[in-house]
Design a protein around this nucleic acid. Structure first.
Lengths: 221, 221
DNA sequence: GTCTATAGGCTGATAGAC
DNA sequence: GTCTATCAGCCTATAGAC
């Protein structure tokens, strides 16, 4: 079962244990097309036939790998979160003052958003996951898990912010939760306006990520 | 025709000319219910029957006032933008340095988001308006108009930012467009996480808006 | 102005051939 | 593993009674 493989891989990745088998090529192809469709027309606006058409196939292929449209959406979301988590965890582990670490995390977050717009736009949509009215018990388990990762993702930023307050590199009077929601909002919003251009080199993207992160951490003054 | 009335009122409001007739009570009732439904379950996820049920009526009533579901969505979006525009234009007109003005605008934006979550969540969804594949020529006109307001809204912030750079109250090296997209993202994101609570007094909301605006303008250091 | 009834189209999911 | 065929349900929009 493809779902379970992905689940296992992702779960171990979060725990910091690498070394799970990569996704099968056929699954990745489907996920890529699904991510694009969901990004362009939303969950309810995308039909399985749309995804199949983009894939150059029919829905038989998709239903062979995914039990339902909801499951498909979940897997795209999961993959998007995996990439975000991986990038931010790495940025967090490099050391420096709390504020420096926070800036690196925001920058990594922003760069990952740009390099995976389709997947991350689905993650942003997924904020409204309750909308999907996940009904089956299995889906509810996956849903709870996804919400949990979202929460832990945000919490990582809060912790580092508090560390920054403790080491004197961030203002003491700030509401850390609100500040983090603001920063993450500024970055997540990229999923809505940013679309890669032909002339977007890696350097361009890195520069944008750095600029945005600096503005969020240092302000405009 | 209700649509046209609303259109006229809104258009004159944007031009700064008040004094158009207020919306009919029956229309407001429908818009309120529609805003809640669209916010909770999205455009495609909301059926006209859902809105009617919330309204305590049947869809006959809704189709009497709105030609289509898309038109209904447009009107909610329009009303949401009207409220945002009104608040930010007022904040912009008060004077002070560019940076002070900008902070007041962000604060007003944030407060309006909190006080009209349902409408503003629809506005945020509307960023993907092309998804609705507005087909009729009339709808395309409305769509173009809405996109235009969005653009002018953002442009107001860019102008004030540049004024702040000119009067020395903002850093010269900042990419104004990116900075504004960041700030607006931080505030727009409220539509996703903020939901009013019982104990949310006006003072509480104002304090949150002020905190968020300060963090966005001054940074965390 | 609001309701009921219904037409007509699309979509998620399944069954079974190859 | 992939495709074709198909069903059953839901949803937009309209027509016409009251």
């Amino acid at each position: 079962m493809a779902n379970q493989d992905i689940h296992r891989e992702w779960a171990s990745r979060i725990r910091g244990q690498e070394g799970s088998e990569p996704l099968a090529e056929s699954v990745v192809e489907i996920l890529d097309c699904a991510a694009l469709c969901f990004t362009e027309t939303g969950f309810q606006g995308t039909s399985i036939d749309d995804v199949a058409r983009r894939l150059g196939a029919t829905k038989g292929r998709i239903y062979h790998y995914f039990r339902s449209k909801t499951d498909l959406f979940f897997e795209v979301h999961r993959e998007g979160m995996k990439r975000l988590m991986g990038a931010v965890i790495e940025a967090k582990s490099a050391g420096g003052t709390g504020r420096e670490t926070l800036q690196r995390m925001v920058e990594a977050h922003a760069l990952t958003m740009m390099q995976n717009v389709a997947y991350e736009a689905v993650v942003v949509q997924g904020v409204h996951l309750h909308r999907l009215s996940a009904t089956t018990p299995e889906q509810r388990v996956i849903l709870d898990e996804l919400m949990d990762v979202r929460h832990r993702f945000e919490q990582m930023f809060v912790e580092v912010f508090e560390a920054a307050q403790a080491d004197g590199s961030a203002r003491q009077d700030a509401d850390t939760s609100l500040a983090v929601k603001g920063m993450l909002g500024a970055v997540n919003w990229m999923a809505i306006w940013y679309r890669p251009r032909q002339d977007d080199s890696l350097e361009t993207q890195q520069a944008m990520a750095r600029n945005l992160a600096t503005l969020q951490v240092e302000g405009i003054g």
